[in-house]
Simulated assay, not measured.
Amino acid sequence: MSFHERLTVNGAELVVEAFGPQDGPAMIVHHGAPGLGSRSEPKRSFGPFADTFRVIVFDARGSGESSDHEPFTHAQWVADVDAIRAYFGHERIVMAGGSYGGFIALEYAVAHPDRVSALVLRDTAADTAHDHLAVERAKSTDRTVIPQWAIDRIGTGRFESNEQLREYWKAILPLYDHQHDPAKDAAKLAATRFHYRTHNAAFGQNMPRYDLKPKLPSVTCPTLVTVGRHDWRTPVAASETIAELIPDARLVVFEQSGHSPQLEEPELFQRTVRDFLAEAGVV
């Protein structure tokens, strides 16, 4: 049974969708790229799991079709996840997230360990230690020439308008996939809703203070850490750090992927996640 509503969550209007059996185990998936991302990617990536799971996706406050109600903080985004969990009546969930959504998934697991049955992470990080590598890759790529003004804004949250954020997104999109397809980049650009203030808050205010490494040993739920071998933004080393710090975490590297193995190697990604959840006893 599907669900598609605009819900009032902690004062914000969030567009929320749910798929799969209402009595199935719950999975909440958080999208990445605050101010750029939306529920469309998690819906596409985790929709196939609705044959077994109650898959819940949503546009976070300040992104997609949801309202721009501040604050745009990790604590608020975590509180929104928990409110959505409570709305659907689930005591425990599989928490999943990729890229910046992985930051929120990690933060949720740290804040609410009793509510997470398993954690699925994709191309994410526990701190900003590897951000300089993204700048280096942007400078050295042979796919396109990225303007210096765009390179200077990677991970900074310094945008003056939605139009400027759009031009930045257009400039860096060629870096994301292992096999570059300009047509896919154009489609992603056309489908994106821009919220530059959200993006500025995420990267200009939240990220300079972001370092979850000291708290990761406290995560006790089964954890799967996935990453594309050729990820320019959150490299394999960032995932290795997470896997080393979370007890018994499993690390899987997708050899033919960049930042999005869930889209670049979907069959392998889905099989990997299903096998992990089955072994974790969630299914």
Rank of each mutant, 00 (worst) to 15 (best):
L212W: 08
V225S: 05
A75K: 11
I28L: 15
G20M: 09
A201P: 08
G155A: 02
Y108F: 15
D142A: 07
T223C: 04
A105T: 01
A202S: 12
L133V: 14
L268M: 10
T223N: 02
G101K: 04
S66G: 05
T234P: 11
V282I: 11
T8Y: 12
H259R: 09
P25R: 10
D142T: 07
H132P: 06
Y176S: 11
S63N: 01
W169Q: 11
E264S: 04
Q270P: 01
I93C: 00
M27L: 15
A186W: 00
V57A: 04
T124R: 13
D142F: 01
A12K: 11
T156N: 05
A86H: 10
F3E: 06
W149C: 01
E244W: 05
R229Q: 13
L175C: 06
A187D: 15
H195C: 06
T141C: 10
T192E: 09
G101S: 02
G64Q: 06
L251Q: 00
A126K: 10
G102N: 00
R166W: 11
A134Q: 10
L133F: 14
E244D: 13
Q179E: 14
V9C: 08
P247Q: 07
R122Q: 13
V29Y: 03
Y176K: 11
I28G: 03
S63D: 02
P113C: 01
P261K: 00
D51N: 14
E163D: 15
A201W: 05
F53I: 06
K184N: 12
K213D: 03
F49G: 05
S260P: 02
A26F: 15
Y108V: 07
P261H: 01
H180M: 06
N10W: 04
G35P: 09
L119Q: 05
G281V: 00
G20R: 07
F49S: 04
V219W: 02
P261W: 00
W77C: 08
S117T: 15
S218F: 05
Q256K: 13
D177W: 11
I154W: 12
L175I: 07
H259E: 10
A150P: 09
D177R: 14
S260C: 10
R166S: 12
C221G: 04
D231G: 12
G62P: 03
